[in-house]
């Protein structure tokens, strides 16, 4: 059974615990994500959403439990960590573009030095990606010269340039003005349609409703409820979930 599961399940998280000092930030969290699935994680502030997706690519270390990404077990072995990071792209709330590099250099850096692509090929691909996220004309500007929405789209292109199998998003639109949220969500919707596996932490309920295959609700470092958008928006079970949805959909 396990062998079969490994084929369709691209992320497997089993009984993961994480502490910051004495603070128990993730409590026995388990979740599997299938290939091409879009999983949206919601929950109140401080519930451990960021901590959870950051353990998947080892930006945070978990202390117990098991994480397997595309068949690679996440251990202390640097080779495994680097292999997993090559399979997973990540988009941050604060964009985290490299301010001293142009947009094009931001996108080509990792393909050239990690994937060992030729500079010319990497640049060609970068231009295609910029085309895809709708800002090819910004290639030679520095991040500081772009709007927030444009920066976030560059960040998405930068992650995609590594040809990842999984994309992790941690509140990608939370630092954006309303006008720019739309343009970023559109890129993400297009990405989901193209069959990318995505794990998205977001407060954008419209996106969750329209794009997610499954929604995960977290509270107090635990997963409280998992279900389809339909389940969540018509028939939530746990009281905590109901309360949260009431507040957020008001």
């Amino acid at each position: 059974m396990a062998g079969h599961a490994e084929d369709t399940d691209i992320i497997i998280v089993r009984n993961v615990n994480k502490w910051y000092g004495d603070f128990h930030a993730l409590k026995n969290v388990s979740l599997t994500v299938k290939r091409k699935e879009v999983v949206v994680i919601i929950g109140p502030s401080g519930s451990g959403k960021s901590t959870f997706i950051r353990t998947i690519n080892r930006l945070e270390e978990h202390q117990s439990g098991e994480i397997i990404v595309d068949g690679i077990p996440l251990t202390h072995d640097v080779r495994n960590i680097e292999a997993i990071r090559m399979e997973t792209g990540m988009v941050f709330q604060q964009f985290n573009l490299f301010p001293h590099l142009t947009v094009l250099q931001n996108i080509t850096l990792a393909p050239i030095h990690v994937r060992k692509m030729k500079k010319k090929d990497a640049e060609e691909r970068a231009m295609q990606l910029l085309e895809r996220v709708g800002i090819p004309e910004q290639a030679h500007k520095y991040p500081g010269q772009l709007s927030g929405g444009q920066q976030q789209r560059v960040a998405i292109a930068r992650a995609l340039a590594m040809q990842p199998k999984i994309m992790l998003f941690d509140e990608p639109t939370s630092a954006l003005d309303p006008e720019m949220i739309r343009e970023v969500l559109e890129v993400m919707e297009e990405l989901a349609e193209s069959g990318m596996t995505m794990v998205v932490v977001t407060h954008e309920m419209g996106f969750a409703k329209g794009v997610a295959d499954r929604i995960v609700f977290m509270d107090g470092g635990e997963i409280v409820e998992i279900g389809t958008p339909e389940h969540f928006f018509t028939d939530p079970q746990h009281d905590r979930t109901k309360l949260f949805l009431q507040q957020i959909l008001k």
Binding site: N57, L59, E82, F92, N96, L109, A110, H113, V114, M162
Partner: peptide
Amino acid sequence: GQYEAADALGLSAFDSLRFI
């Protein structure tokens, strides 16, 4: 965030230091 972005892209510690 700069370290994290470099890590998330899979850059080695040395490359992250050198380029970022």
